[in-house]
Each structure stands twice: as structure tokens, then as C-alpha cells.
Amino acid sequence: MTRRRPGMLVGVTVVAALAAGVAPWLPSYPLTLLTQAMIVAILAMSLDVLLGFTGLPSLGHAAYFGVAAYAVAILTTERQSGFVLCLIAGIVTAAVTAALFGLIAIRATGTYFLMITLALGMVVWGLAFRWVSLTKGDNGISGVPRPDLGLPWSLWGPLPFFYFSLACALVAILLLGLIVASPFGMSLKGIRESESRMRILGYNVWLHKYLAFIIAGTFAGFSGVLWAYYNGFVSPVDVQLVTSVEALLMVALGGPGTLLGPAAGAAIIVFLKNFVSVYTKRWLLILGAVYIGVILFAPRGLAGAFHRRSS
């Protein structure tokens, strides 16, 4: 891992520079999709901390993404709050939700962890769907304005907002990369490989898992804040089970435990979903086939397949 880090750093820089360089010549639709990919990549990477590095498959990760998005939507439409307040409020809401849910979920392992996170995700979905006075229920909250950062370029334009999202994604990659490469991140991998061994070695396994859970929730919240601004609209769809599973697919497709793999997985799914739905109404059918195909033919994700070939 440590050995490969310079390579990854170079890779990220090249891809980011390439994207930044090409962006001004792209038509607005692909540019919008690229922006969406950046934002969703943060969600996928946050889930990778949990699934790939700690070995905890969360089936309710959309919950933290969603509460942050709702926080931004409510604050901007009801209170006309500014970007900094919304950013902090969104991330803190997600972190607090994760801290609360983590207390319940971390006790369980394996399938039970999966089921409990599913149930906790449904709690949030239920509130989004039914607590109409706060969330407007099924209709969702529309009219979230783009943030005003006091810059000379308005973020209403697709190009400035793309650069803004790219910068945010880079910040997330940097922070998450530092976390997973730190001694703490190494301990998480140790827990993934053998929980009992780490316990015998004197590590506080529960605390490590709990912190990983909160970190994952916090970054999912960051992604959710950006999503609310990007989409301008937040609804129960953003917190539903299928959204959580889609995040799992992105991680599985890219390769769990590689951080950048899930980011690539996110980009692929975003483009696939949007392009396929342009050409055919049957895109759910194709997406379903992608789920099954990934599991059958690339069980370790694209990063795994690539790695196997190169070694």
C-alpha cells in the first residue's frame, strides 16, 4: 500500500488535471454528468472506508448522505442560509446521525450488521417520507439555490460548479487517503482481516469500528451537501434502499479497499445510468444485469481485475 501511494497520487493528479483541462470544451450535458460523478464518488469512497477497509457492509449508507442533503435543502429554502453554515450543518447532521446509529449497529457483525444498517436507513427514509411538515414528504424539497461563495464566477453555471465539485472531490480524496494510510487506517485493515487477532493485540476494536462508521457517515454527509446544491432538489429517493445499494455497487464495481476504485466505479455507474436511459426506457433491466455481471465476472472489482492482470 505504502509502496503504491506515490503512483496513486500521480494518477489522481493526472486525472484531475485532465478533467479540469477538458472541461471548458465539453458541452453542458457531459459536464453536468462529470460533476455528478465527482459528487457521487465522494459517497462511494466514504462507503469504502467502511466496506473495503474495515470489512463492514453497510446497507444504509444513503441515510447520512440524505440527512445532510435535507439539512441543506431545509436551511436554504426556509432560512436562506449561506454556504458555510449549510456545509457545517449538513456535515454535522450526518456525523451525529452516524454517531447515534453506530452505537446500535457496531455491536453486530456480518449479516446482522447488514440488516441493522438497512433498518436504520429505513428509519431515515420513513422520516423523509412521512414527516411532511419538515421534509414535504414524497414531493421532496425543490428550489435549493446554488451556493454563493463570493467568487467572481457564479456557481449557477455548469463550468464553475464543475470546478467547485472537482475541488471538493480532491479534498475528500486527500483527507480519506490520509486517513486510510495512517496507523488508524492500518488498524482498520487489521480488523477487516482478523478481528480477534486485533483484539488479542490489545486494540480497542469497537472504538476503531465506531470511528470508521462516523468518518464514513461524515464524508457521506459532505457528498450529500454537494448533491443538494447540484440537484437543487432533495426527496426520499435520495435516502431509499436502492440508493444505498447503488453505493455498494459502485464500491464493488471499482474494487473495495482501494478508495480510487470506488470513485471510478461511481463515475462508471453515473455515466451508464444517464447514457443508457437516453437510448432506452429499459435501463433498469440493464442496470440489474450490471449488478449480476459484476458479481459473477468481476467479484473483486475493476481494481482487482486490473491488479491480477498486471501481477
Partner: peptide
């Protein structure tokens, strides 16, 4: 399908949701 994935919780989840999406679209 599922028999190929013994003990792979994540794989089973993704595969069954894949089927759920396909069934949903076929029903539509």
C-alpha cells in the same frame, strides 16, 4: 445464480438487488 456465491454476503446482496431491478422492469 445464488449457489455460486456461498458465504459472500455482499455478492448475494448485489445479485439479488440486480434481480429485483430486472423483475421490476419486466413487470413494468
Amino acid at each position: 445464480f445464488l449457489r455460486r456465491l456461498p458465504g459472500q454476503t455482499l455478492g448475494q446482496v448485489l445479485m439479488t438487488i440486480g434481480f429485483a431491478l430486472i423483475f421490476q422492469d419486466l413487470a413494468l
